[in-house]
Design a protein around this nucleic acid. Structure first.
Lengths: 157, 157
DNA sequence: TCCATGTAAATGCAACTGCATCAATATCGG
DNA sequence: CCGATATTGATGCAGTTGCATTTACATGGA
């Protein structure tokens, strides 16, 4: 009942530190690019994007699954987006607890303004830092870490 | 002067989303394990570790380089560690602006208590999610993303 | 020596986060 | 229909962060 503790292997540890450092570095770089352009943070982009993908509107609880936010985090993010005039809340027919979110024109414009800055930062940070042709493999390995799919089997084809 | 914007390739995008999701998932898992064991967060561990590695003591500005924190973040983290009795501040001979940090016995004990929980969570989350033998490659690719070393050349050996 | 400049660390303030909880529905069993 | 339970979304509070600035000291040049 009291498993003798076996420390993680050096390989696992290297993945861990690499993952922490890399994700932080890349994210910071992108966030910095947005900030320097006087644009809102990444979370806003993701939310605007997801809402834009649902022209008929989308409910917060559906967004919660797509974005990577806890319920209260999303609730407040939406509040900020509404206050900024990027999103509207409308009553949800058939469920008076709910609401339906729509992007405003300003919201659409903001997302489109952010995209080049966002995308350019991504390319700058990632494209030159990966050996030619290794990106798909890296992406596949990372995807395996998310705990979603089944545990990986053979090397990625 | 106004580069026409070329969006990131799908491969780069996949790396980006994979990196964000994976790092968040893994970090959350480890943090959750610590919290469930009524232990302090990861930042504390890292700081305690680094301080422990310097038996002669270490100055905050040296820690700042090793940890991944901004100056004010570290300043406050140290304040919390001192308040918790894990670390002591001592005047720094030869530079009256500075201070020298030492781990207390309680600090050493806390780090040692955290390690099994931390390590076990790491192993649980990472070891089973990587194809056999792929860990070193993943670690190498991630390391390249940190923007530290030279841009990578050939596939990693 | 004196001043300008640089570095170490702390801090006031506003914004943001996590946690627990709330209010307002909805849904389901009887 | 009624009450127990579940779901949707918001919120009070305490703790944490980012940013800009401050305080204290160090260093180098005139």
């Amino acid at each position: 009942m009291n498993e003798p503790f076996t420390p993680p292997s050096p390989e696992i540890t290297a993945v861990w530190t690499g993952l922490m450092r890399a994700s932080r570095h890349v994210r910071d770089t992108v966030e910095a690019a947005l900030k320097q352009a006087h644009l809102p943070p990444l979370d806003w982009y993701d939310a605007l994007w997801e809402i834009e993908q649902a022209p008929e509107g989308i409910r917060p609880n559906a967004l919660e699954a797509r974005l990577l936010l806890p319920q209260y985090g999303l609730s407040r993010l939406i509040a900020r987006l509404v206050e900024a005039g990027h999103v509207t809340r409308r009553p949800c027919p058939g469920d008076r607890r709910g609401q339906i979110l729509h992007l405003t024109d300003a919201g659409r414009a903001m997302r489109r303004t952010m995209w080049p800055v966002y995308g350019a930062a991504l390319t700058r940070t990632l494209a030159h830092a990966l050996p030619e042709g290794e990106a798909p493999r890296l992406a596949a390995l990372l995807k395996g870490l998310t705990g979603d799919g089944p545990p990986p089997q053979a090397p990625i084809a």
